[in-house]
Amino acid sequence: MPEEVARLATIPGLRTAAQLKRPDPEIPTAAGSLPVTPALSELLPGGALRRGSTVSVVGSTALILALLTEATQQGSWAAITGMPDLGIVAAAELGVDLDRFALVPDPGAELVAVVSALIDGFDLVVLGPVAAQGVQPQLARQLAGRVRNRGAVLLTTGAWPGVDLELRVSNRKWSGLAVDGFGHLESRDVVVSARGRGAAARPRTAALQLPASGGAAAVGRPRARTGLTEAAG
């Protein structure tokens, strides 16, 4: 094992996740897929995240976290690297099980070693903008091949070369403010479009609340109150 990968094994969570990667008969997860919250299932072929696939998410950190929620709650492990500003509280509010979640804020100069170790030990690996910037197509193909071999799912923020599925968020609008501008932000309505290759070739679109008033993702619905539209983010 390369020295830098050996150092990664000392990070709390990484070693444990690798040991627990073996299937657990008590966890009702299909062998070839990882579950997502019902509000997101219509966006994905088969209603789940296919193991061995790469998924890019454009325009929403909240959607990235929402994709981890159901899987971590049902016993899968997730890790995020390259997102130093990620709010752990926000992850918890969206339903991510923090007992099965690891955060490596910045992979530093050893990007390939860090991401490879995470793919080997975790079911879901998120590659944030700090880690993904400057990734060339050849490296993207190498990582995708490792993901297929290990049966993991790689989620990236922003565009990714040769991605299997792209989820793009638009039309963001916060609800909860009255006409006079007073009140509390309660939920955010968004539109998520999905397109990809193979089984994901047919475009899909869904209106969601992300987050909903309870914190997690929910199917979108008309709102009576005046909303606050976001330009981006």
Rank of each mutant, 00 (worst) to 15 (best):
Pro2Trp: 01
Glu4Asn: 05
Val5Gly: 03
Leu8Tyr: 12
Leu8Lys: 06
Leu8Phe: 12
Thr10His: 13
Pro12Met: 07
Ala17Phe: 09
Ala18Arg: 05
Gln19Leu: 15
Lys21Thr: 13
Lys21Arg: 15
Arg22His: 10
Asp24Met: 08
Gly32Tyr: 06
Ser33Ala: 15
Ser33Thr: 13
Pro35Met: 00
Pro35Phe: 05
Thr37His: 09
Ser41Ala: 03
Glu42Arg: 15
Glu42Lys: 15
Glu42Ser: 15
Leu49Arg: 05
Arg51Thr: 08
Gly52Ala: 05
Val55Ala: 03
Val55Arg: 02
Val57Tyr: 05
Val58Leu: 01
Gly59Trp: 01
Gly59Ser: 00
Ser60Met: 09
Ser60His: 02
Ser60Val: 00
Ala62Cys: 03
Leu67Arg: 01
Leu67Pro: 04
Thr69Tyr: 09
Glu70Thr: 09
Thr72Lys: 00
Gly75Ile: 08
Ser76Val: 01
Trp77Lys: 02
Thr81Ile: 09
Gly82Lys: 06
Met83Pro: 06
Pro84Trp: 04
Asp85Tyr: 13
Asp85Asn: 13
Leu86Met: 15
Ile88Pro: 07
Ile88Asp: 12
Leu94Thr: 11
Val96Phe: 14
Asp97Val: 11
Phe101His: 14
Ala102Met: 12
Val104Cys: 11
Asp106Glu: 13
Gly108His: 02
Ala109Gln: 06
Glu110Met: 03
Glu110Leu: 05
Val114Ile: 04
Val115Met: 02
Ser116Asn: 06
Ser116Ile: 02
Ile119Asn: 03
Ile119Met: 04
Gly121Cys: 08
Phe122Ser: 01
Leu124Ile: 04
Val125Tyr: 10
Val126Ser: 05
Gly128Gln: 03
Ala131Pro: 04
Ala131Leu: 10
Gln133Ser: 13
Pro137Tyr: 08
Leu139Lys: 12
Leu139Ile: 00
Ala144Gln: 15
Val147Lys: 11
Asn149Tyr: 15
Ala152Leu: 03
Val153Asp: 06
Thr157Asp: 13
Ala159Gln: 11
Pro161Tyr: 12
Val163Gln: 01
Asp164Asn: 10
Leu165Asp: 08
Leu167Phe: 04
Arg168Ile: 13
Asn171Cys: 11
Lys173Asp: 13
Trp174Cys: 05
Trp174Met: 04
Gly176His: 03
Leu177Met: 09
Leu177Tyr: 00
Leu177Ile: 10
Leu177Ser: 05
Asp180Thr: 02
Glu186Asp: 14
Ser187Gly: 12
Asp189Pro: 06
Asp189Ala: 15
Val190Lys: 11
Val190Ser: 11
Val191Ala: 08
Arg195Phe: 02
Ala199Gln: 07
Ala201Ile: 04
Arg202Glu: 14
Pro203Arg: 08
Thr205Met: 10
Thr205Glu: 14
Ala207His: 13
Leu208Ala: 07
Ala216Lys: 02
Ala216Ile: 10
Ala217Ile: 10
Ala224His: 14
Gly227Arg: 08
Leu228Trp: 10
Ala231Asn: 01
Ala232Asn: 09
